[in-house]
Simulated scan of single mutants.
Amino acid sequence: MQSISKLEKNSTYLKVVWSDGEESKFNYLWLRDNCPTAHDKDSRHRMFNILEVSQNINPKKYNVSSDGKLEIEWSEGDHTSYYDPKWLRENCYTIKNKKKYISPYKLWDSSLEKNLETIQIEHDEIINSEAGLIKWLELLHYTGIAIVKNAPVEKNSGLKVLNRISHTRETFFKTPFEVINIPKPNNSAYTAHALRNHMDLPWFENPPGYQFLHCLVNSAKGGDSSAVDAFAVADYLRNNEKDIFDILVNTPLKFRDKDYTQEAIRSVHGTAISLTKDGDYNDIRYSIATLDALDCHPDQMDSVYKAHHRFGNLLHDPKFQINFRLEPGDIFSFNNRRLLHGRTEFDPNSGHRHLQGYYMDRDEIIGRLKYLKQN
């Protein structure tokens, strides 16, 4: 563990020189806000109110205590703080912001189709072992796709394995939603038609993070599945067609729920590609079926439509897309805000096709994985 070897007071921050030569700049307001006494010991919520001190707060006295802690007597509030050097080093934003960001995502293209076994996992392995659950969560988080094999084929039986992660997210489609061919459908998923690669529910402000399609029966002719890693497509554009990439990142498209059974109008503007604070891929929001009439500025409309057109074609390009057939007992699991999914047309007179669908928020997958990996 690194220790503090030198301290230097500046106008807005305290400079800490570490025993390995690294330097940290700790802002005074940040330090006061993160005093160990600021948090309730049980709930761990911050109880200290930073608004109760002035913006000019600074150390009246500061030193390294006999047990190696940073000790600060503040200019206001008759308060002294003691900071563990291990905590300071782990939370040092100076060092964090110097590090090169490395994306956790494993991008893929059509070559994955020849290696589908790398994204498959046995249902019982997840049910019976923490290692199996971690493997599934890692596939979902890093690769964005997993196919659970040999799950039961009874109705609602997907809930048992999903609850190994967390609770599902309820929508007006109910849980689970039934992907079958029905008369007078309120969604194209409930037909025998082909479905272009799409995300579900792009007209929600916060579309579900993950989707799980549990195949119960698939005896009809047709109805093969497709998937594309839209992060990989976005990355291709970023590296090869930056002008189109920038339009898709910066210009919101308009999506609308067109479900005639709903007594609500759900409409959202969202960019086709959104990025994280580190410039990594955060979300893809794309569905030709539920794109509303765009309302971009007249000077932008031509370039926006051409970017939308180019992106859409790449999202169906054979070099990026994989194709596979779901078997009874398969649970097609994927990041709904990264991976677009579709299917070929099927003949409802040739056999039955029945999937049950579930949604889960992305926080549940990532949060559960972090928890399991820390133990």
Rank of each mutant, 00 (worst) to 15 (best):
residue 6 K to Y: 13
residue 9 K to L: 13
residue 16 V to I: 15
residue 18 W to G: 03
residue 20 D to P: 05
residue 38 A to C: 11
residue 40 D to F: 09
residue 41 K to F: 13
residue 42 D to Y: 14
residue 44 R to C: 09
residue 45 H to K: 14
residue 49 N to I: 13
residue 52 E to S: 13
residue 57 I to W: 03
residue 64 V to R: 08
residue 66 S to V: 13
residue 68 G to M: 12
residue 71 E to L: 12
residue 73 E to R: 08
residue 74 W to H: 04
residue 75 S to N: 11
residue 77 G to L: 09
residue 77 G to T: 05
residue 78 D to L: 13
residue 80 T to Y: 07
residue 80 T to V: 15
residue 81 S to A: 15
residue 81 S to E: 09
residue 90 E to L: 13
residue 90 E to K: 14
residue 90 E to M: 11
residue 94 T to H: 08
residue 96 K to A: 14
residue 100 K to I: 13
residue 104 P to L: 05
residue 105 Y to W: 10
residue 105 Y to A: 07
residue 106 K to V: 13
residue 113 E to L: 05
residue 117 E to Y: 13
residue 120 Q to E: 15
residue 126 I to C: 11
residue 127 I to F: 07
residue 131 A to M: 09
residue 136 W to Q: 02
residue 136 W to G: 03
residue 137 L to D: 06
residue 138 E to D: 15
residue 140 L to T: 03
residue 141 H to L: 09
residue 150 N to W: 03
residue 151 A to Q: 00
residue 151 A to V: 01
residue 153 V to R: 14
residue 159 L to H: 13
residue 165 I to P: 04
residue 177 F to P: 00
residue 182 I to G: 03
residue 186 N to G: 09
residue 188 S to P: 06
residue 189 A to K: 05
residue 189 A to C: 11
residue 191 T to W: 07
residue 198 H to D: 01
residue 201 L to V: 12
residue 202 P to T: 12
residue 208 P to A: 10
residue 209 G to W: 00
residue 215 C to V: 04
residue 215 C to H: 04
residue 217 V to C: 05
residue 221 K to N: 13
residue 224 D to T: 12
residue 227 A to H: 01
residue 227 A to I: 01
residue 228 V to H: 02
residue 230 A to C: 12
residue 235 D to F: 01
residue 239 N to F: 01
residue 241 E to G: 02
residue 254 K to F: 14
residue 254 K to I: 10
residue 255 F to N: 05
residue 255 F to M: 07
residue 255 F to Y: 15
residue 257 D to H: 02
residue 259 D to H: 04
residue 259 D to V: 05
residue 261 T to S: 06
residue 262 Q to T: 09
residue 262 Q to Y: 06
residue 265 I to P: 00
residue 270 G to M: 00
residue 271 T to F: 01
residue 272 A to T: 15
residue 276 T to R: 02
residue 279 G to T: 01
residue 280 D to Y: 00
residue 283 D to V: 02
residue 287 S to H: 07
residue 290 T to K: 01
residue 291 L to R: 15
residue 291 L to W: 05
residue 298 P to L: 12
residue 300 Q to H: 10
residue 300 Q to I: 11
residue 304 V to F: 14
residue 306 K to P: 00
residue 310 R to W: 02
residue 312 G to N: 08
residue 315 L to I: 09
residue 315 L to D: 08
residue 316 H to S: 15
residue 323 N to L: 04
residue 327 E to W: 06
residue 327 E to Q: 15
residue 328 P to L: 04
residue 328 P to G: 08
residue 330 D to F: 02
residue 332 F to A: 08
residue 333 S to M: 10
residue 339 L to C: 15
residue 341 H to L: 01
residue 342 G to Q: 02
residue 343 R to H: 11
residue 344 T to P: 06
residue 345 E to L: 10
residue 346 F to H: 06
residue 347 D to R: 02
residue 350 S to L: 00
residue 350 S to C: 00
residue 354 H to K: 13
residue 360 M to V: 01
residue 363 D to N: 07
residue 364 E to T: 11
residue 364 E to H: 13
residue 365 I to G: 04
residue 367 G to P: 05
residue 367 G to N: 07
residue 369 L to Q: 10
residue 370 K to R: 14
